[in-house]
Design a protein around this nucleic acid. Structure first.
Lengths: 139, 139
DNA sequence: CGGAATCCGCGGTGATACTG
DNA sequence: CAGTATCACCGCGGATTCCG
């Protein structure tokens, strides 16, 4: 199949048409949102129900206020989570999964499940010297 | 999700035990891999079958050699994709989805499907002034 | 064609201090 | 308690050039 026909113009696409290119843009946009280091983690953590700021922070070791605030704000702006501020004397703010974020959470859960299922396999592969690189001689 | 629900203070920490904390680490590891800017995109693109270096680059507008090479190497090391180098006069290297990457691709496809399904909704939310922030007055 | 080497800026990381 | 502000540091990633 190669690209012998795709040398120059060749508008026809063989197996390369996996992604319709008009989807590329929106995929990029979404991946830039949820694909960052913390968003999915926050969504996964919020699955258990509404949670306060410090609770989220406690649930995610290694995250810092700056990023937590930033991530929470991003997700709130996107409508994936909701932010409820209680005007009490001890300020309380609770974050919860919005319906939109709930749908994403289903996928995140699958990703986590996959991760738990294959993380050892991945680690084993990473330890391999030759890796998965194979050389084929062909004239 | 029932581990620390009982031993908590029970005041507001009921559902906080969503992530067992022993999973946090591996989730982080996997997210650091596939959650970067390009990995999922490469996997999604490779779904259509084996592809050459430049073909992948053409399929992903905006990616540069540095990141493409880096991402491909990462994924190869992890065993998610395979790299086959043909020792020909015009050097040809083909990347293809490994079984492991194929499994991940199923999830990536769902994520893409979700993205295509809700990207306009997200964009609409982002344009909203008040966002999803609600204030509740409570003594 | 495939990739390494290089330069460089932006932004995430990490800590600390401060406010409402 | 829930952030905001500031800063130093450093690595990711963008962009160009060069090499096998």
């Amino acid at each position: 199949m190669q690209d012998s026909a795709a040398i120059g113009m060749a508008a026809s696409v063989g197996p390369c048409a996996s992604i319709p290119a008009d989807h590329m843009d929106l995929i990029r946009q979404v991946l830039d949102r949820v694909g960052d280091k913390w968003s999915m983690l926050v969504i996964a953590v919020l699955e258990g129900g509404p949670m306060r700021y410090t609770d989220v922070q406690r649930q995610i070791p290694g995250i810092y206020q700056r990023m937590l605030t930033h991530t929470l704000r991003q997700l709130t702006e996107d409508g994936l989570i909701t932010r409820t501020a209680y005007a009490e004397v001890p300020p309380r703010v609770e974050y919860a999964l919005a319906p939109l974020g709930g749908g994403l959470n289903e996928i995140v859960k699958q990703l986590i499940g996959w991760a738990a299922d294959h993380h050892d396999e991945i680690r084993a592969n990473r330890s391999r010297p030759g890796a998965a690189t194979s050389s084929a001689s062909r004239t």
